[in-house]
Simulated scan of single mutants.
Amino acid sequence: MTRPLVITDCDEVLMHMVVPFAEWVDAEHGVIFRIEDASFAGALKRKECGTPLEAAEVWPLLDGFFRTEMGRQYPIAGALEAMAAIGAQADIVVLTNVGPDHQQRRADQLAALGLDAPVIGSRGGKGEPVARLIAEREPPVAIFIDDIANHHRSVADEAPGVWRLHMVGEPAIADKIVAASHAHARIDDWTAARDWILARIAEGVRAPEPALA
């Protein structure tokens, strides 16, 4: 029988990203990172004048970080222990928006920490890759975990029978991010999140789909 499936993001769910990224862009690029609104680009400002970076300047910095600085990242408290407990009951796939270029680096990063799970380096909304995984694996129950609200909306549209957990594991930004309206739960602590996920697995039922108007 096909096992349950947990599809999880990585940055700010399994691994700290914004804090090591902020330290790096400060030290190496003269850029400060301050979460003051919902825009990642708007949070990046030049130290010398305080002006926000243009959107076109942001991806090269992120790409550079993932290309050479992933060693600065470290696990969210309790994440790897929770994944070990969950992995005893379900298959785990890491769906991360680092893109195909950094997919293997991410897999190597997690494997070095003891999480040897398939990694998909996607771009854009996560609804389509989640729907493909569900179609391929046909799990009796599936759970999606991500820190970004738009991905929960995307999954709700493309794979509505998947349980959706909104998690922001980085305390520096968690209180600045509103709970995703398309998620079934918002939990930022891995002990509580593990229990919620294992409860969904034990129940073994699909998430309720929205009633048609």
Rank of each mutant, 00 (worst) to 15 (best):
V6N: 07
V6G: 04
I7N: 03
T8Q: 11
V13D: 00
V13E: 08
L14M: 09
M15G: 07
M17V: 09
V18P: 05
V19H: 05
P20A: 14
P20V: 14
F21W: 12
D26G: 04
H29P: 00
I32W: 12
I32A: 14
I32F: 01
I32P: 02
F33L: 09
S39R: 06
F40P: 03
A41W: 14
L44G: 00
K45N: 01
R46I: 12
C49S: 13
C49R: 14
G50Y: 06
T51M: 10
P52Y: 04
P52E: 11
P52N: 11
A55I: 11
A56V: 15
A56S: 12
A56P: 01
V58R: 12
W59A: 15
L62G: 11
L62M: 13
F65C: 07
F66V: 04
T68Q: 12
T68F: 03
R72C: 02
Q73L: 06
Q73W: 07
Y74H: 15
Y74E: 12
P75D: 04
A77V: 13
G78Q: 04
L80N: 01
L80Q: 01
A82Q: 06
A84E: 14
G87L: 01
G87T: 00
Q89D: 14
Q89S: 08
A90D: 10
A90T: 15
D91L: 05
V94G: 03
T96Y: 06
N97S: 12
G99D: 03
P100K: 11
P100A: 11
D101V: 05
D101Y: 00
H102E: 10
H102T: 07
Q103L: 07
Q103S: 03
A107N: 00
Q109S: 09
Q109G: 02
A112G: 14
A112P: 07
L113T: 13
P118N: 14
P118M: 02
P118K: 13
V119F: 08
I120Q: 11
G121A: 02
S122P: 00
R123T: 15
R123M: 14
R123H: 13
G127F: 02
P129K: 10
V130C: 04
A131M: 03
R132G: 02
L133Y: 05
